[in-house]
Structures are given as C-alpha cells and as structure tokens.
Amino acid sequence: MAERPPGYELPLLLFGAFRSIVDATHADLAERGHPDLRPIHGFVFQAIGVRGTTAVELAARLAVSKQAAGKTIANLEKQGYVERTASPTDARAKIVRLTVRGVEFLELSARAFDEIQTEWAEAIGEQRLTELRSDLRRFAPGELFRLDAPGWLGSER
C-alpha cells in the first residue's frame, strides 16, 4: 500500500487546479481583447452584479477597505469596464454598473470556463468530473461564490 501524501499537499493541489483554470481563462480573455484584467476583477464584477452597487457595498462584499474598492472602481472605469451613475434613491451616492465591455468580459469568461470544463471531461471522463464536482461541493458547503475571497486572501487576521 502506498504511503499517504502529507496533508499540506491537498490544498496545494486544489489551489494549483484552481490557478490552472483561472490562468487558462485569463489567457483566453487576453486573446479576446481583455489583457489588463486579473483574477480579482472577476470577483469585482460578480460583486457589482447586474443591478450595480455602491463603492461602500462593493467593499463590504469583497471584504476590502473602501479605499481599495474605490481604487479598483477608478481603474476599471478608466478601462471602460464600469461606469458610475447617480443613485435613484440617494443623491449623495453613486451606483457602479458594468458597461457593455464589462458584461462582455463576464460572457467571455463564462464561455472559457465552459471550454475548460469540457477539456477536463474529455481528460478524466464525464462521470469522474461529475463525481469530483459532487465531492468538492461536500467539502466546500455554503455559497458557491465567496466574493469575500479578495479580502480573505489579503487579510492580516
């Protein structure tokens, strides 16, 4: 019987697989006209959502400072991915919304993730991929989109 690998290997393998998927997706996105976006921006776009959000709400969703959220919004606005509009309910607040370019990024990234999933299914088989997904859901319960990952990764807790 083979010796059991050390416990630290499992999270590193999971992270490596995650990194592989995200890197492949961003390489595809770069080829399709989005070379300046990074993995963090996918979290930002998801946190902005289809209705938009304020900078304060965005910071809370991402678990980052208001300053960090504001800087990210400003950079994405310069690149044409988001726009700020007046809030219909609060004259002091601005709503951050995805532009057509921001929505395009999300659509292209979804397509790239689907293509990678197809490649994995071809490599290990559809049944194994289904079982892997089921097992991962068992060990990663709760929200599928943990938008607070940016803050969690950068936290000094």
Rank of each mutant, 00 (worst) to 15 (best):
E104K: 09
G49A: 05
E77N: 08
S109F: 01
V103R: 15
R138T: 13
Q117L: 11
F45L: 04
A60S: 15
F45G: 02
I116Q: 09
V100R: 15
Q67S: 13
G49P: 01
T85W: 03
A74P: 00
T130S: 11
E131A: 13
G80P: 00
L76M: 06
G102M: 03
E104V: 00
L98W: 08
I48A: 06
R128W: 12
K66N: 13
A47G: 04
A69F: 02
G125V: 06
L129A: 11
R111V: 08
R101V: 11
A55Y: 03
L129I: 01
S87H: 03
K66D: 05
A63E: 07
I124S: 12
E115T: 00
F43M: 07
Q46P: 00
D90W: 04
E122Q: 14
T53A: 13
E107Q: 12
D90F: 10
I48F: 15
V64P: 00
G49D: 10
S65I: 11
F105A: 15
T54Q: 05
S87P: 00
V64F: 07
D114L: 14
K94C: 00
A86V: 03
A110M: 12
A55I: 02
L98R: 04
A69W: 02
L129D: 07
L106T: 02
L76F: 01
T89E: 12
I73R: 11
A63K: 14
I73S: 10
I73L: 11
D114M: 15
E57T: 02
S87R: 09
R92K: 15
V56T: 10
R92G: 05
V50I: 08
R97C: 03
I48S: 06
S109C: 14
I124C: 10
I124M: 14
A121K: 12
V44A: 12
W120R: 07
L98K: 10
V103F: 15
E57S: 11
A93E: 13
E83W: 06
A47F: 02
R128Q: 06
R61P: 00
A74K: 11
K71N: 07
A68K: 13
A112M: 04
D135M: 13
T72Q: 08
A86H: 10
A112H: 03
T99I: 02
K71E: 14
S134W: 12
P88W: 12
E107H: 09
K78T: 04
A86R: 15
I48Y: 08
T85Y: 08
R138W: 07
S65K: 04
S65P: 07
R84D: 02
F113V: 11
L76T: 01
Q46M: 12
E107L: 15
S87D: 06
L62V: 03
A86S: 13
E119C: 06
I116G: 04
Q79S: 07
L106C: 09
E115N: 10
A86E: 07
D114P: 00
G102H: 07
A69R: 02
Q117R: 13
G52K: 13
I95A: 03
Y81S: 02
A86K: 15
L58H: 05
